[in-house]
C-alpha cells in the first residue's frame, strides 16, 4: 500500500528563517520555545502572574497604614525578619527582590521582542482606520512602559528615599505621608496606579489564554476575575494617597 507523506521531516519548518539561524526543530525544547511567539508569550504570562501575585500582597500590606504608624512600621520591620532564624536578616526580602527583578526583565524583554515582531508584521496602515479594540488592549505597550518607569521612581521614593521629601530609613509611615504631601508625588502615583489597573485588566485574562484556559465557564470566571483584580488593586493602592490628601492619614 502506498503511503503518502506531504513532505519529509527535513523539508519542514525554518527554511525561510530570515536570520539564517538553525531550523527550529533541531533546537532543544527550551531554546525552540524562546524563539517562538507562543514561547515568549508564555514567559510574559508566567512573569506577569508572578508580579501580579506580588502586587496583591503589596496592596494588602499597604492597607496597614490605616491602623497607625506603629502597626505599619512594625509590619515593614517584620518583612525584614521573614524566614529567621533559618534565613539571615533581610535575606527573604533580597530573594524576593531578585525574583521580582528577574520577572520584570523577562517580561520587558519578551514584550519588546514581541512588539517589534507585531509592528513589523503590519508595516502599512489602512487608509480607513477603525479603532475597535478596548482601551486597555490598546494601551498595553505604553501602559507597561509607564508602570516600568514608575517602579524606578517608586524605589527611589520609598525604598532608597532619594527623591522622598523626608526619606528617613526605618520610618516608612512617615515617608509615605511625606511622599503624598507633594503634588507631583500624588500625580505620578495616581497615573501609575490607573495604568496598573488597565494593564492587569487586559493582562491577567491574556495570560490565562496564553497558558491555554479554554473551557467556557473557566474563561468567564477569569474574565470577571481580571476586572475584579484590576478594580480592587487600583482602589486599594489609591486609598493611601487619598487618605493622606484628605488628612485621614497624617
Amino acid at each position: 500500500m502506498a503511503t503518502a507523506t506531504a513532505k519529509t521531516p527535513t523539508d519542514r519548518g525554518g527554511e525561510r528563517s530570515a536570520s539564517g539561524t538553525a531550523p527550529a526543530r533541531r533546537l532543544g525544547p527550551l531554546r525552540r520555545m524562546w524563539r517562538s511567539s507562543i514561547g515568549k508569550k508564555t514567559v510574559m504570562a508566567v512573569s506577569g502572574l508572578l508580579m501580579l501575585g506580588y502586587l496583591v500582597v503589596h496592596m494588602l500590606g499597604n492597607l496597614k497604614i490605616f491602623f497607625g504608624a506603629d502597626e505599619f512600621n512594625g509590619y515593614a520591620h517584620w518583612l525584614r525578619t521573614i524566614g529567621e532564624p533559618f534565613l539571615h536578616h533581610e535575606w527573604f526580602l533580597w530573594i524576593a527582590r531578585v525574583v521580582l527583578v528577574a520577572a520584570v526583565v523577562a517580561h520587558a524583554v519578551s514584550a519588546y521582542q514581541l512588539s517589534r515582531r507585531d509592528l513589523a508584521a503590519r508595516p502599512v496602515k489602512y487608509a480607513h482606520r477603525k479603532a475597535r479594540t478596548s482601551y486597555a488592549t490598546r494601551t498595553m505597550r505604553w501602559g507597561g512602559v509607564i508602570v516600568g518607569l514608575f517602579v524606578v521612581w517608586h524605589i527611589l521614593d520609598l525604598t532608597t528615599g532619594t527623591v522622598n521629601p523626608r526619606g528617613q530609613a526605618g520610618h516608612p509611615y512617615e515617608n509615605v505621608v511625606a511622599a503624598f504631601t507633594t503634588w507631583y508625588g500624588n500625580v505620578i502615583y495616581v497615573v501609575a496606579m490607573l495604568a496598573v489597573g488597565l494593564h492587569v485588566r487586559h493582562g491577567f485574562y491574556s495570560a490565562a489564554q496564553t497558558l491555554g484556559a479554554t473551557r467556557a465557564g473557566l474563561r468567564r470566571g477569569l474574565s470577571a476575575a481580571s476586572n475584579v483584580l484590576a478594580v480592587v488593586l487600583t482602589a486599594g493602592f489609591l486609598s493611601v494617597p487619598i487618605a493622606v490628601m484628605t488628612g485621614a492619614v497624617h
Binding site: P9, R12, G13, G14, E15, R16, S17, A18, A24, R25, R32, R35, S36, S37, I38, K40, K41, L114, R117, D118, L119, A120, A121, R122, R132, T133, T137, M140, H202, Y205, S206, Q209
Partner: peptide, 27 residues
Amino acid sequence: ETRVLDMVDQMDTEGFGGCTLAGECAT
C-alpha cells in the same frame, strides 16, 4: 506534537505577528 510545533515555527518564520487578544480576528 510535531504538527503544532512546526506550524507555529513556520507561522513565526513567515513574519506574522503574535496574539495580543484584541479579538479582531474572530470578529
